[in-house]
């Protein structure tokens, strides 16, 4: 049984797992995890070059942007202007218009600043970007972001890097039900079962960084995430059984000796 592909801004992807490239021991481990995960998209950050070390290892030497889609983020941006400046540079560096917008607020919880996020998304869309937007799990804002033309709605499951899992299943489900663009849980997934849970709620994909990078064996966790996303997606498509309050024997009661 064939699933339909994940479509982002007109491009088709067969993997529904997007992984980050931060917090790994080194880029080689990151590349190995990417291979094990089967992901076709990685999130990346844009930062100043280190002028004192021009020979430092470069991400692009380990993960080939010709083979893996680089999704530049705006991590560390707290205003719409910062985010736009960053993504214009990213577009120049890589030549891609598909971007992950995140405009953050308080460093303690890294919740998105939704009014700034809305403003930045509008400006980026006007400037020709395909915006995948990190957002709160508020269905009202999610709808507004879709209405202005974001190509993917990416609610958090829990605070970035917390690994606390999906905190509000109801909201994620409401966002999934109302959206006609892909919904991707971005942030909060801590282990494979939580990735499967997001997919069972009907999400189109998940993004995870810390859950893989900070696992004791990141490459193995990458593989686990690959299977979890497939399992969760299949379970969602299959449709779970109804919940019952009492037992219902699986073996027939008739013909007992």
């Amino acid at each position: 049984m064939q699933d339909k592909p994940l479509i982002l801004a007109g491009r088709e992807f067969s993997s529904r797992l997007i992984i980050g490239t931060g917090k790994y021991k080194d880029y080689q481990q990151n590349a190995d995890a990417l291979k094990a995960s089967g992901a076709e998209i990685v999130t990346v950050a844009l930062r100043r070059v280190n002028l004192s070390d021009p020979d430092e290892p470069m991400l692009v030497d380990f993960i080939d942007p010709e083979k893996t889609v680089f999704l530049p983020n705006t991590a560390g941006c707290f205003t719409a202007e910062d985010a736009i400046r960053t993504l214009r540079l990213a577009r120049e560096a890589g030549g891609w218009s598909l971007v992950k917008l995140e405009v953050l607020s308080d460093p303690k919880h890294l919740y998105p600043d939704m009014s700034e996020t809305m403003r930045a998304a509008e400006m980026l869309i006007d400037d020709g970007f395909d915006v995948m937007v990190y957002c709160s799990d508020d269905p009202v804002f999610a709808k507004k972001l879709e209405d202005i033309g974001c190509v993917a709605i990416m609610p958090l499951g829990a605070p970035i890097g917390s690994g606390l899992g999906i905190q509000n299943q109801v909201n994620i489900r409401l966002i999934v039900e109302q959206s006609s663009v892909p919904v991707i849980v971005d942030a909060g997934v801590g282990t494979a079962s939580e990735a499967a849970e997001a997919m069972e709620l009907g999400c189109d994909a998940i993004i995870t960084n810390t859950a893989i990078a900070e696992a004791k064996d990141p490459v193995r966790m990458a593989k686990a995430m690959k299977h979890a996303v497939i399992a969760g997606r299949e379970a969602y498509l299959a449709g779970r059984m109804a919940r019952k309050l009492y037992a219902d024997p699986s073996s027939p009661l008739g013909g007992l000796i």
């Binding site: 980050g20 917090k23 990151n30 950050a45 930062r47 100043r48 070059v49 540079l89 942030a187």
Partner: peptide, 30 residues
Amino acid sequence: NLQIVPRSLFSQTELQDGDRIEIVRFIGGG
């Protein structure tokens, strides 16, 4: 000076005294 210099113009763009240049690249991120 807050304006992107396209790569195609690197060779013909001369620095001016007082310019503020930012040089960035992709690194690992979430």
